[in-house]
Amino acid sequence: MAVVATAAPEWATKEPCLMGIDEAGRGPVLGPMVYGCMYCARSYQNTLATLSFADSKTLKEEQREELFESLKTNSSIGWEVDVICPKVLSAKMLKRTKVNLNEISHNSAMGLVKKALDMGVLLAEVYVDTVGDPEKYRVKLAEKFPGIKFVVAKKADSLYPVVSGASIVAKVTRDRAVRNWAFDETAQNMHMNTGSGYPGDPNTIQWLKDHKHPVFGFPTLVRFSWGTCTPYFKNGVEVTWESDELDEDEASNGSAKRQVKLSSLGFTGFKRKSEEIESSGKARCKFFQARKLELVRKFQ
């Protein structure tokens, strides 16, 4: 996870500070999820309240952009972001041992706290918009960073100006990342009229239709682990993974479909065709099993 850092301002290393943490782009089926934080000295708290930060969702895009620019030039404020690419989100959530989105979110927030501490920021209080149960999350944070007071709340972004500021940092960064997205893929006719990325948005639905691919699924802008994608994969080429089979084995008796059977490609081993053996080296000595070497006796 790339944490883009600005150097810790002098005041932050001398005076106790408070920090707000918020996220943008947790729900959308595409683009990065961004965690942002903003911090200032405790003595600046009252001034901060007058800066008309509000929950980023209630502001227009231009207002957010303006506020972000003014926040960047305000020498009494520090900020950081952690941009988590859709690739990384998909990969973590689809690992053999799956990491869920809450855990990814918690780790990102903790990464921001750690980063600030490493930079020498004197953190006294941290305000966090909750992900999952607020009290459990607070305990997790407090155990990880003893000595810091954590306040974890629902809608913290509209309750605490320092979290509102963080939500602007996160939201503007996320919007810019999507706007300036450079595709890894080199397929023809790709575009960025993605809409909001929420499953109900007609522009998002159209974008998904325009960019689906029977074999590859989607470009890596998409979060493959989102339920929104599932119907598209059902219509595409079937892809089966060993790690998914292990999940399914619990429920059904796992129809082994890991590999396209060699025999269906026209190769037959010693066993009769009906037994449909895989390229597993099954029933051979250990040397061959370990190497998945199957004896192919004839082509047909």
Binding site: E185, A187, H213, V215, F216, E238, T240, E242
Partner: peptide
């Protein structure tokens, strides 16, 4: 690839697999 892909013809590998 470490998965089964039920597809047996050409695919735009170089455009998508990077």
């Amino acid at each position: 690839l470490p998965c089964g892909i039920r597809h047996n013809s050409a695919a735009a590998v170089s455009d998508y697999f990077k």
